[in-house]
């Protein structure tokens, strides 16, 4: 009897109930409803600006003036524009070299900081400093370090009798490229080091103990235990690191503005110069859009390459 009463109290969702009642109790519909706010935010704040940026790349819109659809005109011009190609070269050089160094030094620092040592917490905090300092401030510091007359590096080397005149850090194209890459490495290392350190701390010490009992030396322990178990984190960290480096703007803008003679212009800085300062929004958007395939490739490489689980566990992927 009681069962009957309870059953009667439940709102019937049968063929004769209203569509609203049916919808209200439909789990799929409710799931969709809960996703709507997040989806709306993604659409409005991510998908729409991205779509608009891509669209602008196909127009000749100027700042303050609506433009017309011009098809691939902007891209056709960029193909012939040697400043654009120089910025592509610079961006790749900057990203590849800086990322390799950031990974190598970051991993090395993470392994060092994972050991028991005096003042461990203090040292870990110190390593984070370059990441905490605002980018513009660190760029200004490097601006002084690389000064053509008063560089502290040049001064030290002159005092030591190793060179006779100051090094032209930012005036020579190759020196300038190397200098901005060093600044980026300095700034990016803490992110890699601290994140990898977090990853290292998730590895069970018993694995190392077992390996030591089996006679594995330090290098073998690193190669057979640390690296494979760290790979998922490395994948994530390096994906972000590559994305940050590829889209870097502030360091270059403060230190060189893309000079000398565009030798340090990255795609991001050239896009800003053309779109905002020059007013050619369409062309600037085309340069920014041209970055997307490279960024997607970096993400896909990380996703499909570094996150293969069998490979991480020492096996072979299908």
């Amino acid at each position: 009897m009681a069962t009957t009463t309870e059953a009667e109290q439940v709102t019937p969702v049968g063929e004769d109930s209203s569509w609203y009642e049916r919808l209200k109790h439909n789990r799929n519909w409710l799931g969709f409803l809960f996703m709507v706010p997040a989806a709306a935010i993604l659409l409005v704040f991510l998908a729409y600006p991205l779509g608009l940026g891509v669209w602008l790349g196909f127009t000749d819109v100027k700042v303050g003036r609506p433009g017309q659809f011009v098809g691939f005109d902007n891209y056709a011009w960029l193909l012939e524009d040697d400043v654009f190609w120089l910025s592509v070269f610079n961006t790749f050089l900057y990203t590849v070299v800086a990322s390799i160094f950031k990974f190598a030094i970051g991993l090395w620092l993470a392994v060092l900081l994972n050991r028991h040592m005096p003042f461990k917490s203090f040292l870990r905090a110190i390593v984070l400093l370059p990441f905490i300092v605002p980018t513009v401030l660190s760029a200004l510091a490097f601006w002084w370090i690389y000064d053509s007359q008063d560089s502290v590096i040049s001064w030290t080397l002159i005092e030591m009798g190793l060179i006779e005149r100051p090094i032209d850090f930012l005036g020579d194209p190759n020196n300038a490229r190397a200098s901005v890459i060093v600044a980026n490495i300095w700034r990016g290392i803490p992110f890699v080091a601290i994140t990898l350190l977090a990853g290292l701390q998730t590895i069970s010490p018993s694995l190392y103990e077992a390996a030591t009992i089996d006679g594995a030396n330090e290098w073998q322990r690193f190669w057979r235990i640390t690296l494979p178990l760290l790979t998922p984190i490395i994948a994530v960290v390096m994906t972000f690191s590559v994305l940050f480096t590829f889209t870097d703007f502030q360091l270059i803008w403060v230190m060189t503005r893309g000079g000398p003679i565009n030798a340090t212009h990255l795609m991001a800085t050239l896009s800003y110069q053309r779109a905002i300062i020059g007013g050619s929004l369409g062309e600037g958007a085309a340069i920014a859009t041209a970055m997307i395939p490279f960024l997607l490739a970096a993400i896909l490489f990380s996703y499909f390459g570094l996150q293969r689980r069998k490979w991480q566990q020492g096996g072979v992927d299908d």
Binding site: Q149, D168, T256, I261
Partner: peptide, 21 residues
């Protein structure tokens, strides 16, 4: 020219001039 002008932005020459360089 004095060394470094290839990298000079708007503030560099002020500094170099004030320092006598």
């Amino acid at each position: 020219f004095v060394q470094g002008t290839a990298s000079w932005l708007d503030g560099h020459n002020n500094k170099a001039f004030l320092q006598g360089a």
